[in-house]
Amino acid sequence: MDAFFNDLAVMAPAVVFNIYFAMASIPLGFVMAVFLALGKASSNPLINALSRGYIYAFRGSPLFIQFFMFYSLALSLNLTVWRPLGISGFVLHPLFMGPLVLVLNTAAYTAEIFYGALRAVPRGAVEAARAYGMSRSQQFRRVVWPNLIRLAWPAYTNEVVFLFHATAIVYFALPVVGPQADLMITAKTLFERDFNAFLHFSVAALYFLVVSLVVFFLFGLVYQRLMRHLPAQPGLHFAPKWFR
């Protein structure tokens, strides 16, 4: 039991890195995804093809490979670009590279969600907005977007949790700088010290679970706020059937 609390304490600073990676990439990924989704729905063939290709490529390949690819690309540009500019320490730092690749990745997944929601926006609502004489930007801001975000929010919540889980592989692809280790690296280091796989990995898993639950809770609150114009859904009630 002592070892368990010790692990909890050791991993508390480590979870901050996972949370940092997720928090740094969510806002940018969100904004990028909105543009990508609109691009995928665009009638301009060039924008359409580019957005479609981007979303397909980043959804169709592993994040692990994307990390390696972008990091090695940044490394090979080091001598010619970053070093002369004097920003090589910044660009090649995992705290920058990690969120960069995560943004590129989550933008594609989120864009697909938003694109699906965009197509599910009721046609009648958009037609009514047009009949009122709204401009395209007014249509988007007042009719399409509010519908879109409500439709997409549950799926987007899942994507955020997946993104948080994806932060577990950041440091398997990027170098660990000094004591800046995330949950997985900390668990692995502790494991290599006393070979107690069950304890260390369980504590790391517990942290991931708890943060995931917190994300679900917070995003659920936002969803309730988004849906406040509708009658409240009946709450969950616990009534197990022991045998049926």
């Binding site: 889980h165 398997f172 692995k188 796989a197 069950f198 990995f201 898993a205 991931f208 679970l209």
Partner: peptide, 20 residues
């Protein structure tokens, strides 16, 4: 539970735990 933790964690943990 398995969906609640990252796949890579379980991917590393299971072979190690099985071996042990």
């Amino acid at each position: 539970i398995v969906r609640g933790v990252p796949d890579v964690l379980f991917f590393l943990f299971f072979p190690l735990a099985f071996e042990q």
